[in-house]
């Protein structure tokens, strides 16, 4: 009886110790200064988005016309825009939209791209040829031009901009996943799964894709930054978020007319975009090293 209890205890201990892969990666991530910097920016962004109503000092969409284009001061840290709205509050609320854009667009490209890449990589042959040529065609179009074309067809709105950027991002994920699948499927454990009698879909889901997760996570992290940048670009061009939304790209557009008299109306949203994209890129690079320790040695 005692030995049973002891055995059970050791089972629990072992189980705790063995959840190691992710914990290891995380501690490796924390050993990189640039990745920590990226992580701090990303966490700050998420906090700003979650608690926007509590931290923003003013209503982001209602301006006081008497306070138009005020320079940064104690009352308005980042100044006000041409309609007298507090820029800091607009940036804080804009983080919500940015996160939405990041998650939804990357979600679209990730799901569709992974699906296409996994099938084409695993089955190869004619299917691979067709899918990859289709991807090549998509990649041959200038990225932003394709997104503009798609929003032009769907009509300008934030949702349509997200769909467009999501579609434009598909080829990158399809390629990354295909490459990873090609190398993972040659492993003996995939052959072992076949020998055991697993169906093809089970092999792809349980054996191949879980072992491709590292490059996918890295690509997705980098992709969120790019997606935020692109949607800001579309909004700046008037194809994304509509006024009076506090979207960063839209703020740039609205501020550009007063660039010479009130540069803060452009500078701060621009800095916000810069920092967030930089944050995601640093985090993505850090994850790449953390998830693949072999690469770094």
């Amino acid at each position: 009886m005692d030995t049973q209890i002891a055995a059970k205890k050791s089972v629990n201990q072992q189980a705790n110790q063995s959840r190691g892969i992710w914990a290891d990666s995380f501690s490796r991530l924390l050993r990189q200064k640039s990745a920590i910097f990226g992580l701090i920016i990303v966490v700050t962004l998420i906090c700003a988005a979650l608690f926007a109503p509590y931290i923003a000092p003013y209503n982001p969409e209602k301006g006081i016309l008497g306070d138009r284009l005020q320079a940064p001061s104690e009352g308005h840290w980042f100044g006000t825009d041409s309609q007298g709205r507090d820029i800091l509050s607009r940036i804080i609320f804009g983080s919500r939209i940015s996160i939405q854009i990041g998650i939804i667009t990357v979600g679209i490209s990730l799901v569709v791209g992974t699906f296409m890449g996994a099938l084409s990589g695993y089955f190869g042959g004619v299917l691979d040829l067709l899918v990859m040529r289709f991807i090549d065609i998509m990649m041959a179009f200038p990225y932003i031009l394709l997104a503009i074309a798609i929003t032009a067809v769907l009509g300008p709105s934030l949702v349509n901009a997200m769909i467009a950027i999501g579609i434009v991002g598909i080829p990158i994920y399809a390629r990354v996943v295909r490459g990873a699948v090609l190398s993972v499927k040659e492993n003996e454990y995939v052959e072992a799964a076949r020998a055991v009698g697993c169906s093809k879909s089970r092999i792809i889901w349980r054996h191949v894709l879980p072992n491709c997760i590292a490059p996918i996570i890295v690509q997705a992290t980098l992709g969120i930054g790019t997606a935020i940048l692109d949607s800001a670009g579309l909004s700046f061009l008037g194809l994304g978020a509509r006024p009076p939304k506090s979207e960063w790209g839209l703020m740039l557009n609205q501020g550009k007319d007063s660039l010479q008299t009130a540069p803060w109306a452009v500078m701060f949203p621009g800095l916000a975009i810069l920092l967030v994209v930089l944050g995601f890129n640093l985090l993505g690079d850090g994850l790449r090293d953390a998830l693949d320790p072999k690469l770094k040695e």
């Binding site: 892969i21 003996e188 454990y189 072992a192 799964a193 055991v196 169906s199």
Partner: peptide, 28 residues
């Protein structure tokens, strides 16, 4: 059934030993 040469390559690194051994029973 088959037992492979390379014990480092023939076990899926993302599955626990239990999952690895249960799988043949589950799929069959």
């Amino acid at each position: 059934q088959i037992v492979f040469q390379d014990p480092y390559a023939s076990l899926n690194p993302r599955m626990t030993v239990e999952e690895i051994i249960i799988e043949p029973m589950r799929v069959n």
